[in-house]
Design a protein around this nucleic acid. Structure first.
Lengths: 179, 179
DNA sequence: CAACCCATGTAAAAAGTTACATGATTAA
DNA sequence: TTAATCATGTAACTTTTTACATGGGTTG
C-alpha cells in the first residue's frame, strides 16, 4: 500500500489538516494517486498509532487538527522508497468497450472517445499552465525532480490525445456512411 | 465495475474455461484489465446466476467447464458500452517515490527507474511483435479497431521509455559525483 | 515417479467506494 | 440568514489481493 507514504510525503512538504490533504489529492497529487477523505482520515489515525505522525489541535478551530511527519515517519518513508513494485496495472474500461466493438460492432463509441479527448486536452492545458508558472527558469535539483513528475503527466496526456485522434479516425464504419 | 463486461467480451470472442480466461487476462487482455483467477471464477458464477452466460461440462475432463455468452449477456454488454466512465485514476507508487525524493532526497531511485525502463522496453518489444504478426497488411474494420487497442499499449510504453530516460538524466545528484 | 501444467475453488485480509452524518466558519 | 466551504468522522458495501487447498492429466 502506498497511500500512507503518499501522505507522509505530503506532510513533509507541509504539515496539514486531513481536509487540506484531501484537497491536494484532488489536485496535484491526484494525478498519480487518488484518495478520498474517508481513506485519508482513516490512514492518518493508523499512522498516528504507528508513531509516524503527530497531530496538534488548532486553538482557534473547534475541530481542525494539523498533522506533522515525525522522524519515525521519515525513516519509514526512506525504508519504503527502497522497495520496488511492479508496473501498476492498467484498468481502462474504454479499451474494454473498444474490444467489445471489435467483437460485436455497432456500439457507437465515437462520442465517448471524443469526450475523453476533450478531458485529456483540458488536463494538458492545466499541466502546461503549471509548467509555465513553476518550471520556466533555471531549476535546482529539487525543482528538476518535481518537474520530472509533472512531465510524466504531460506525456501521458499528449499520448492519449494523439491516440484519441487516431481512434476517432478509425471508428467510423463506412457501411453506416449514408444510413 | 467492468470485469464482467471484459469477460463477456472475451467469451464472445471465444467460449472458454475460467482457466483459459485467467491466462488471457495475464497476457493480451491484461494490458488494459487485470484479473486473478479467483475474481474470474466468482464473476463467472455471478454472471451465470444473472443469465448472461451458460456453462457446459467437457465430457473428457473431470472439472473443465466451457462458458458461453448468451443473448442476454450480449444485450448487457451493449447496454454497458453506452455508459460512460471518468478517466481511470492513475496510481503509480514510483511517482510518489519521486515526490518523496524531491522532499527529502537521498533515496537512490535510479535503479528503480532503470528497472522500469527495462520492463517498458520489454513490453514494447512484445507489442511490436504482435503488430508485425497480426497488423502488417490491409485490415478490415474489425482489424483496425483491434489495432487501435494495441496502439494504445504501444504509445504508453513509448511514452514511459522516453520518460524514464529523461528521469535517469535528471536524478543523479551532482554533489554525490565523487563520493 | 516427479515435476509441471491444467483446472477450480474457499477464506481472510486489505483497499477502495458510496452513503450517511454532524457541526463550525465565512462570505454574500 | 442562508448558502458555501471548512472540517471530521462512521457504516456498509464492493473490489482486489494473498494465502490456502485440491486433484487430474501430461511429459520426461
Amino acid at each position: 500500500m502506498s497511500l500512507p507514504h503518499a501522505l507522509l510525503t505530503s506532510l513533509l512538504e507541509r504539515p496539514s489538516s486531513g481536509y487540506d490533504l484531501a484537497r491536494r489529492f484532488d489536485s496535484s497529487i491526484g494525478y498519480y494517486w487518488r484518495a478520498s477523505h474517508q481513506q485519508i482520515y482513516r490512514e492518518l489515525a493508523r499512522m498516528e498509532d504507528a508513531g509516524w505522525i503527530s497531530s496538534d489541535e488548532v486553538a482557534e478551530h473547534a475541530r481542525k487538527r494539523i498533522h506533522r511527519c515525525l522522524p519515525a515517519g521519515e525513516a519509514e518513508l526512506r525504508r519504503w522508497a527502497a522497495t520496488g513494485d511492479p508496473i501498476p496495472a492498467q484498468r481502462d474500461p474504454l479499451l474494454i468497450r473498444l474490444r467489445a466493438e471489435a467483437a460485436i460492432g455497432g456500439l457507437g463509441l465515437e462520442s465517448q472517445v471524443a469526450q475523453r479527448l476533450a478531458e485529456h486536452e483540458s488536463r494538458l492545458t492545466a499541466y502546461r499552465a503549471i509548467e509555465a508558472r513553476d518550471f520556466a527558469g533555471d531549476l535546482d535539483r529539487r525543482g528538476r525532480v518535481q518537474y520530472a513528475i509533472l512531465r510524466a503527466g504531460i506525456m501521458t496526456e499528449e499520448s492519449w490525445i494523439e491516440w484519441c485522434q487516431m481512434a476517432l479516425a478509425t471508428l467510423p464504419d463506412p457501411t453506416d456512411a449514408d444510413a
